[in-house]
Design a protein around this nucleic acid. Structure first.
Lengths: 227, 227
DNA sequence: CGGGGGCTTGAGGCCACTCAACGATAGTGG
DNA sequence: CCACTATCGTTGAGTGGCCTCAAGCCCCCG
């Protein structure tokens, strides 16, 4: 196996304060919050991009679909993540709530005004776009060249790295979602997870002195020594 | 089959003048040109990003590799394309000349200075990063969800769209390069191309009143009515 | 408690991969 | 100028990893 955990977690630049709006001269950028129940669409691909969103509670998937329904999830957005930031006029993905989700809205024009007046905001817009690009670049390597088991293991590590909770890793999304993120079928994802359980996630333990505790859709699926 | 050509070609924003440097107050941004012979490395992954490059002649591939040598090409850069633009301190890909290639160098610090002093340059930096992101997003869909034949067809369409020459489409890169770009093996790419020839690229003709002429590594591989 | 959605597991099939042979082409040195 | 070699591309045969189809279980939720 090929797993490795990063000893130091990468800094994250995805809160609104990281956008620099807090330091902006523009006073009221936030529009309010909206709550979507499980599976509800937040915006559709090619819709005009009127808002930028931040996840307050829950989780969001953004995806593209082919004409015959094949779906590729580009990213999952967890609490504090910003999504829906477009440089063009319209959204390039569809966004849906994975579970019951609350998002904060920022009017796109407000953000643009803030960026116009504040170089820091503008700078952070570029940094966020670059961060999204970096994620996509790494994901291309995964989609194009990794095996099913490697994909699932990388997914677990990514989610672990991103989740704030130290104790257990929570996976709010379904097997189908994971599959569509990794370019697999849900059955293959299920088999890979079973395989990792069967191996008692030995590599997580062996290489990093750490076993990931997976809180899988609320169910405690695998428990081990922590950190 | 699933091919479609865009009737209107998308505008391209990848020349240095598009970066806005021409309008910059900074006078001498260009450093000079370098020529690399076929297969030579221009920069390596994780190397400090001292320069940004523009292809003057030839073609460049940028890729990541796994520990065991599996390779994923993220993009091909053709004449006039800019590559090596990083927001972090180091390159996230390795760049190599596909064929004998001349590149123009821009010192990274010069570009940053120009961006600092000129909002237009900065704006274009963001736009270019967003364009790269969009390409990566589309490529994730291809890598994760398209069949071998669809991948190769999409590749031909992309190259056709990007190549300046109206008559024939030239493919300077090897089968292995194409395979590593599409997440396939070189044999599968070869078979898919043979299959498209066998079908006389019917769908290119049928759906768009247009047949693509493929100039494959210098050899005229497929000829048909043009536009 | 019945229905439905999500997850797991098994059996079989297929698409892309692997291994291999061969031809064409370009570059190299005698 | 011509073997010689290396590289690249094509094609065939066989394999295997992931997909497809299907059954059954569990849990949630009305």
């Amino acid at each position: 196996m090929f797993l490795r955990t990063t000893s130091n977690r990468a800094p994250r630049f995805n809160s609104l304060s990281d956008l620099g709006i807090a330091s902006s001269s523009n006073p009221s950028v936030y529009l309010g919050e909206l709550t979507y129940s499980k599976g509800k669409e937040i915006y559709g691909e090619k819709e005009p991009a009127a808002y930028v969103y931040q996840v307050i509670k829950g989780a969001v998937r953004t995806y593209k679909v082919l004409a015959d329904g094949r779906r590729q999830i580009g990213a999952f957005h967890l609490v504090s993540d910003i999504f829906g930031l477009e440089n063009g006029e319209s959204h390039r993905f569809t966004a849906e709530a994975v579970v019951a989700t609350t998002v904060r809205l920022i009017r796109r024009t407000s953000l643009e005004d803030a960026a116009e007046n504040d170089a820091v905001v503008f700078h952070n817009l570029l940094r966020m776009t670059a961060k999204n690009l970096q994620h996509a670049e790494n994901h291309m390597l995964l989609l194009g060249r990794k095996t099913a088991l490697e994909k699932v293991a990388a997914f677990l590590l990514e989610m672990d790295e991103r989740s704030a909770s130290a104790g257990a890793l929570s996976l709010p999304m379904s097997r189908r979602d994971i599959a569509d993120y990794l370019g697999l079928t849900l059955e293959t994802v299920s088999r890979a997870l079973s395989e990792l359980h069967r191996q008692e996630v030995l590599d997580f333990l062996g290489k990093s002195q750490r076993k990931i505790v997976i809180r899988d859709r609320g169910q405690l699926a695998s428990v081990g020594s922590q950190r």
